[in-house]
């Protein structure tokens, strides 16, 4: 395992009020060497918080993060910037325009992590190394002197990727890396990312709300809803035989181009509040089309979903077949 996250929890105090927002609640997952894991869920489900915790930009309230066997979660985020592991967990951001310093040229942006964290051998041949990385990301050398605003969206994202892989990280966290790009550019970037993973043997944590894209790039998928993982398993299994009602609703909402009418599962009602949610009520209860009495009494935990190996879902329906909802 390259990354092993156990019972990760992050709560934010509510500003000017009582209680806490449970952004991430008891999340456990692992990523193997060279594995690509997808993290899907809607806005506010806590996936961005997971990203910030795993990339060690934020400190967890509780739980542990093991990276290459070391408990990196215990190191405060402020100090983590100067540890050796810093360069080994890197990230590609959602909005390339926002994630590049407007005052840095492409060259300086890519060179920044090498200057700060690179070994002396790497710093000695900084120029060559920057060109090498840029080339790997399909960025022509003549663009390296440009500022972000002088680059197209696709080129900006290539700079962002080059910066992320400059230190040869083992784990690359991709936070919606193509959602700000046009489809034609998205296709290029996705190919580039798949290619880089193969060439450099990195592990990916791929966060996205675009399920079609996640399926293309990942081996395994985690589905989050209101701070908890509700389903996880091999990508094909989760997408073909979703076990959790939320995953089913999510998949049915994806537009199917010209495929004729499909049955869409409509979610009604408002999501539950993330502020001090009851620990004994399923978070999806109230919106779940199949919720029953037990969901209000007991929080479901992840259990084998039967369909395939290591496919798990957190739903009481897996115990009680639909229709015979008895406690």
């Amino acid at each position: 395992m390259i990354l092993d996250v156990r019972a990760l929890t992050r709560r934010f105090p509510v500003r000017g009020g009582h209680g806490a927002v449970h952004a991430v609640d008891d999340v456990t997952f692992a990523i193997g060497h060279g594995e690509s894991v997808g993290l899907v869920g809607e806005s506010g489900c806590g996936k961005s918080t997971v990203v910030r915790l795993v990339t060690r930009l934020d400190d967890p309230t509780d739980g542990r993060i093991f990276f290459e066997g070391h408990d990196v979660g215990a190191i405060p985020a402020k100090r983590f910037a100067r540890t050796a592991a810093r360069g080994r967990i890197q990230m590609v951001f959602q909005d390339p325009a926002d994630s590049l310093n407007p005052r840095f040229t492409a060259f300086d942006t890519i060179a920044d992590p090498m200057r700060r964290l690179g070994e002396s051998a790497m710093r000695a041949r900084l120029r060559d190394r920057v060109h090498e990385v840029a080339d790997l990301c399909g960025l022509p050398a003549e663009l390296l002197g440009r500022y972000p605003h002088q680059l197209s969206g696709g080129q900006q994202q290539r700079v962002g990727i080059a910066r992320a892989i400059a230190l040869e990280p083992r784990l690359l966290v991709l936070d919606e890396p193509t959602s700000a790009l046009d489809v034609s550019v998205q296709a290029v970037i996705l190919h580039l990312l798949a290619d880089l993973r193969q060439r450099l043997g990195m592990s990916y944590l791929f966060v996205s709300h675009d399920l079609n894209v996640v399926r293309m790039l990942t081996d395994r998928v985690l589905v989050m809803y209101l701070g908890r993982i509700v389903e996880q398993g091999p990508a094909d299994v989760v997408f073909e035989q979703p076990a959790h009602p939320y995953t089913r609703a999510l998949l049915s909402a994806v537009p199917a181009d010209g495929g004729g009418p499909r049955s869409r599962i409509c979610l009604t009602g408002e999501p539950r509040s993330p502020i001090d949610p009851s620990p004994t009520v399923c978070r999806f209860h109230g919106r779940c089309p199949e919720g029953f009495e037990r969901c209000e009494r007991e929080m479901p935990v992840l259990r084998a979903a039967g369909a395939g190996r290591d496919h798990e879902a957190a739903c009481h329906l897996l115990d009680a077949p639909v229709g015979s909802a008895v406690s």
């Binding site: 894209v213 399926r215 994806v254 495929g259």
Partner: peptide, 23 residues
């Protein structure tokens, strides 16, 4: 045709995704 080929479809593989050259 190119736009269609570059749009990720349900269940499509990455290899089926063809970018549009140029801008």
């Amino acid at each position: 045709a190119r736009l269609l080929a570059s749009t990720p479809r349900v269940g499509a593989k990455l290899a089926e995704l063809v970018p549009i050259p140029g801008g």
